[in-house]
Design a binder for these strands. Structure first.
Length: 574
RNA sequence: CGGGACGUGGCGCAGUUUGGUAGCGCGCAGCGUUCGGGACGCUGAGGUCGCCGGUUCAAAUCCGGCCGUCCCGACCA
């Protein structure tokens, strides 16, 4: 491609709306443009990058026996009603009505459609199967953000495994896990697999692939000592020693005027009211049922854990007026002591605690001497609290680390819920009819592209790994008005192209600074610079984008070297 | 959905407080001089000031409503 003919709209200044590095650089470099919040046009450079990621994914999916499909993006409501997700997906699903008045949905994921196709698999002899597609997904995200990291319309590789039994699913799950590691490694990413919550997907077990980045939205807990790693939605840690008083204390109400927060209370009274001696009482509406959620005063709730523990589909904090109606007091003076009319779910950290402090359900009053088991009717115990940095690992006791990352992939063990819902059964060797055991596996392509930028850039711009770079080399011609330079550039361009190198010829009539800055911004791995001055001495320059080292060589040697480097680089991680 | 900020040529911004001719830098077009790290001169094109309504002799500017975008919190590839 000749740069003079290419549509590569680079920007000299950072776009005003872009905060995240990948957003900033992908817009500045002319890879993407926004149409509306959460919807981006992929420009030619971005398309080339995505096509490379697409290809790597297909190679690795095919390697584990995957077969590629292409399914509709518009679905009849019936299939979603059948699986129960027409309701469950709520506002996240784009819905529309066709001219006949039939309800339609834009696909957020394709368990239903694939399970429907799986009804044509009728014998265990046809199993296992791995089916996949690379296709557009639509999710009406409440808050799209960070450029292409979180959008409402995106390309996903989704695959589905079909097996006779759970042992088969284990195999499919493991091969996907291995394939995902290869995919991300080939994209130049270091992705960590962590145990995660299954969320709206349902199922028994799930693993996320996370790339470390400050632009990420997931908090990850890892242990350097034993290798434990989990999303904070699932992570646990050891609790510190409890130093409650031995003897039973009397329950006693005491005035706490003006006290609204855990901190207020701790500050106004002695050590017996410190946060870890308090019971935090939250009111949540769990699938329309108001519920008290209890945590230790210094602990923070993870809402996903509450959803997982209750199996809830919808969860929200109660509104202030609801709280007043239910509890007779405002947030700040709430407690679960004596509460009979609401379900109470409590975090494990409160088990067996005594001498605790909590709200009295009377504004300006609290209770002390609370014995959790004696005074509170806990309907259910669960792990609800957020792990904090430095807490001891539950496996080995070493201090845990907490960091932010981007979720580029997620794999789920689904089980039989979708096959049962859609009627996908096979006969086993004994002639019994059994539901197909399914797994579901996803990778976000544009998000992967953005994650690469997040992980690989410098103050000049993007540093693409060769495997996903839009072009592998750029020939930068200085002084296109000078015949010698122009002809040498054309020759380099031709020879590299003939050798199969994806090469861009910067034949624009621009000053050197502009050309260098653009080539570095869009992150082409190798640059050959041709100018009249060098040519007088018979040399060109070869610059490596990562590290920005430059060396002089003859034209022949430069061609040879770049071809060799590209060949080597393409096999990265493969 | 809660909180904050913003909306003025393709991009980045000033002008709004105190109503009165729509401006700057970059980019773009033409010509010339330059050109191995984002050149310079001259000439020129390009704007419903997010939208609707109100106040006023007069609105980018004041008032009301709506829409859009970004950031922070709850959701996911």
């Amino acid at each position: 491609m000749r740069w003079s003919k290419a549509f590569i709209p680079t920007l000299r200044q950072d776009p005003a709306d872009a905060e995240a590095v990948s957003h900033r650089l992908l817009v500045r470099g002319g890879f993407i443009r926004q149409l509306q919040a959460g919807h981006y046009s992929i420009l030619p450079l971005g398309q080339r990058v995505r096509a490379k990621i697409d290809r790597i994914i297909r190679e690795e999916m095919d390697r584990i026996g995957g077969q590629q499909f292409h399914l509709p993006a518009l679905h009849p409501a019936e299939i979603w009603q059948k699986s129960g997700r027409w309701e469950k997906m709520g506002d996240d699903m784009f819905r529309l009505v066709d001219r006949k008045g039939a309800d339609q949905a834009l696909g957020m994921t394709h368990e239903e459609v694939f399970a429907l196709l799986a009804t044509e698999v009728t014998s265990y002899r046809q199993l296992p199967q791995i089916w996949y597609q690379i296709q557009t997904k639509f999710r009406d995200e409440p808050r799209p953000r960070s450029g292409v990291l979180r959008v409402r319309e995106f390309t996903m590789k989704d695959s589905y495994s079909l097996d006779l039994d759970w042992e088969g699913l284990d195999v499919a799950f493991r091969s996907h896990r291995d394939a995902y590691h290869r995919i991300f490694r080939r994209c130049g990413l270091e992705a960590v697999d962590v145990t995660a919550s299954s969320g709206a997907m349902g199922g028994s077990e799930s693993v996320e692939f996370i790339v470390r980045s400050p632009a990420g939205e997931d908090w990850i807990v890892t242990c350097a000592s034993c290798g434990y790693r989990a999303n904070r939605e699932r992570a646990t840690s050891l609790l510190d020693e409890v130093d409650d008083p031995e003897e039973q204390a009397e329950l006693e109400e005491f005035p706490t005027p003006g006290v609204k927060t855990i901190q207020d209370l701790a500050g106004s009274f002695g050590p017996w009211a410190e946060p870890r001696r308090q019971i935090k009482t939250l009111v949540y509406v769990v699938d329309d049922v108001p519920t008290l959620v209890l945590l230790r005063g210094d602990h923070e709730l993870v809402e996903q854990k509450l959803m997982d523990a209750t199996g809830a589909v919808r969860l929200r904090p109660a509104h202030p007026d609801e709280i007043r109606d239910l509890m007779g007091a405002q947030a700040g003076s709430l407690g679960a002591v004596g509460v009979e009319h609401l379900p109470v779910i409590a975090d494990h950290a409160l088990r067996g605690r005594r001498g605790m402090v909590t709200g009295a359900n009377r504004d300006g009053f609290h209770l002390k001497g609370v014995d959790v088991e004696r005074d509170i009717r806990v309907g259910r115990w669960a792990d609800l609290r957020a792990v904090r940095e430095g807490e001891p690992c539950a496996e080995c006791g070493a201090p845990l680390e907490l960091w932010k990352g981007i979720e580029v992939g997620h794999i789920f063990k689904l089980g039989t819920s979708y096959s049962e819902a859609m009627g996908a059964y096979v006969q086993d060797p004994q002639g019994n009819t059994r539901p197909i055991v399914m797994g579901s596996y996803g990778i976000g392509l544009e998000r992967t592209m953005a994650a690469v930028v997040e992980a690989s850039h410098d103050d000049r711009g993007i540093v693409w790994p060769i495997t996903v770079a839009p072009y592998e080399a750029v020939v930068t011609v200085l002084r296109v008005d000078e015949t010698s330079a122009r002809e040498a550039g054309e020759e380099l361009y031709r020879r590299l192209g003939e050798a199969g190198v994806e090469v861009l010829l910067d034949d624009r009539d621009e000053r050197p600074g502009v050309k260098f800055a653009d080539a570095e911004l869009i992150g082409i791995p190798f640059r050959i610079t041709v100018g009249p001055k060098g040519l007088e001495r018979g040399v060109v320059e070869v610059t490596t984008r990562s590290g920005m080292q430059t060396r002089e060589s003859t034209l022949d040697e430069a061609v040879r070297w770049v071809i060799q480097q590209v060949d080597q680089g393409r096999t990265l991680g493969g």
